[in-house]
């Protein structure tokens, strides 16, 4: 597939140079032709039609576009899609299974960790990366790990609680 924006151009604008890349998204290999300048966030949102990854600030500050790149949280608005060639990425759409929410998703709902929901996918993925490394974080460790993600609604306290809730559940499940 070609991931030109929305794939709706009435007539092709011009001979746009493209590169073929293959990346693994949420466990599934995807091969796409992209313009070299296309941002990874836009490939995910438009080309791959996964709109759970949001673009907030375009400058790597707000973290709404956070995804996991080889398991590590990165901001997909300042990475080119071609840089993801041959790599594994995970987006919010990959968190829940068909029948079950991820404990972090449950935690955000249980502890009212979101209001408008715009920062939520990025927050949850940053939290997922933290819990993979540190299954029993302190409140301060959570606050530090999420300090690359802005939220304007909640005041963070309930986000911290959400991650603590999830950590507890995940520890119980792994025992």
């Amino acid at each position: 597939m070609t991931s030109l924006y929305d794939e709706v151009a009435p007539t092709p604008a011009a001979d746009v140079p493209t590169r073929r890349i293959t990346l693994n998204v949420n466990g599934e290999d995807r091969t796409v032709d992209v313009e070299p300048r296309l941002l990874l966030a836009h490939l995910i949102r438009q080309g791959l039609k996964m709109t759970g990854t949001h673009t907030g600030c375009d400058t790597t500050n707000c973290g709404a576009c956070t995804i996991l790149f080889e398991g590590r949280p990165i901001k997909s608005c300042t990475m080119l899609a071609v840089q993801a060639d041959g790599h594994n990425i995970e987006t919010v759409e990959g968190m829940a299974s068909a029948s079950e929410l991820h404990p972090i998703q449950e935690g955000f709902k249980e502890e009212h960790g979101l209001h408008c929901g715009f920062c939520t996918p990025g927050m949850m993925l940053a939290a997922k990366a933290l819990l993979a490394e540190n299954p029993d974080p302190t409140e301060d460790e959570i606050r530090w790990a999420l300090s690359g993600n802005l939220c304007r609604c909640t005041g963070y306290q309930n986000i911290v609680k959400s991650v603590l809730w999830a950590a507890k559940k995940m520890r119980a499940e792994s025992n």
């Binding site: 949102r45 709109t51 759970g52 919010v92 968190m95 929410l101 709902k109 929901g117 939520t120």
Partner: peptide
């Protein structure tokens, strides 16, 4: 617990840019 969370935590919100 909030009804709207069900879509937001799955990345299934529907913002204008979506």
């Amino acid at each position: 617990r909030r009804v709207e969370d069900n879509r937001f935590i799955r990345g299934k919100g529907n913002y204008v840019d979506d």
